[in-house]
């Protein structure tokens, strides 16, 4: 079964323990300066944003049908059955299409390095594989970030919406966005205010390109036959003309001989 995270912004106290746990897990530097950075980057895979007393976590949504994995020409990004979307550095050639395609602008690049990698949260794929929760969920002191089965977390999120009318924006973000994500979110502040894209389709984004790409296998033989046909017709005319000319010339010659 596929795992997921449920982040409930109303339970979050902005302590940034998840940020720190994430940095430790991924062996990234973490200090005052990094804690102050409000942007995901090659050295900060998750950020806790604040607006007054409201908080919001941003991280890779580990989409169910991820755009990043679909666009990667060499299959360096990959959705695992357990939920996490992982990155295999040894395949990546650095075309950065994943960065351009991700609807949440998640993958980041090591711009300062001569041989850079793409960097993003991979939902602690190794820990999840070993049956453990993600580092951030384990570190969260209030249960704002909760790890579990996706199906169960969806039920729980809907229950919370149901039990607390008016407390939340009436929406589980990530339930249907771009076909669903493995990170689900609840908030009392509209998600767009924290930079989440509004009006995302319910269809997975890869469908948009797949609809076009899937026609290629039909197009190639058809195109070949069509072009070959045109060639045959346009050149056949010449051949016929040439043959006719030759025939009539021969007839003439025969006539001439008879006489």
């Amino acid at each position: 079964m596929s795992k997921a995270l449920l982040y409930d912004a109303t339970l979050c106290i902005g302590c940034k323990q998840c940020e720190q746990a994430c940095a430790e897990k991924n062996q990234l530097p973490y200090n005052e300066t990094v804690a102050g950075e409000e942007r995901q980057s090659d050295h900060k895979f998750t950020v806790v944003l604040s607006k007054g007393d409201k908080f919001m976590r941003r991280m890779c949504m580990n989409c169910q049908d991820p755009a990043c994995a679909s666009v990667c020409p060499v299959g360096a990004m990959h959705k695992t059955a357990a939920g996490p979307v992982i990155y295999e550095e040894s395949r990546c050639m650095g075309c950065r299409y994943c960065m351009v395609a991700c609807p949440f602008g998640v993958p980041k690049y090591e711009w300062s390095k001569v041989l850079p990698r793409v960097q993003k949260c991979t939902m602690c794929a190794d820990r999840v594989q070993a049956g453990k929760p993600t580092a951030c969920a384990e570190a969260c002191p209030t249960g704002a970030t909760k790890f579990g089965e996706r199906d169960e977390l969806i039920k729980e999120a809907e229950q919370r919406l149901h039990d607390n009318p008016g407390k939340y924006v009436n929406h589980v973000y990530g339930l249907t966005e771009v076909g669903g994500t493995s990170v689900l979110m609840l908030s009392s502040v509209p998600f767009e205010e924290f930079g989440f894209p509004a009006e995302l389709t319910r269809d997975p984004l890869p469908l948009l390109t797949y609809r076009v790409l899937s026609r290629i296998p039909d197009f190639v033989p058809l195109g070949g036959i069509l072009l070959g046909g045109v060639w045959w017709i346009t050149h056949r005319r010449e051949e016929v003309a040439a043959a006719e000319a030759q025939e009539s010339a021969e007839k003439e010659a025969r006539k001439a001989r008879k006489k």
Partner: peptide, 12 residues
């Protein structure tokens, strides 16, 4: 790499 690591779903 695309020669040996194929992802036919990718436009790239």
């Amino acid at each position: 790499h695309p020669l040996v690591m194929r992802n036919p779903h990718s436009v790239m």
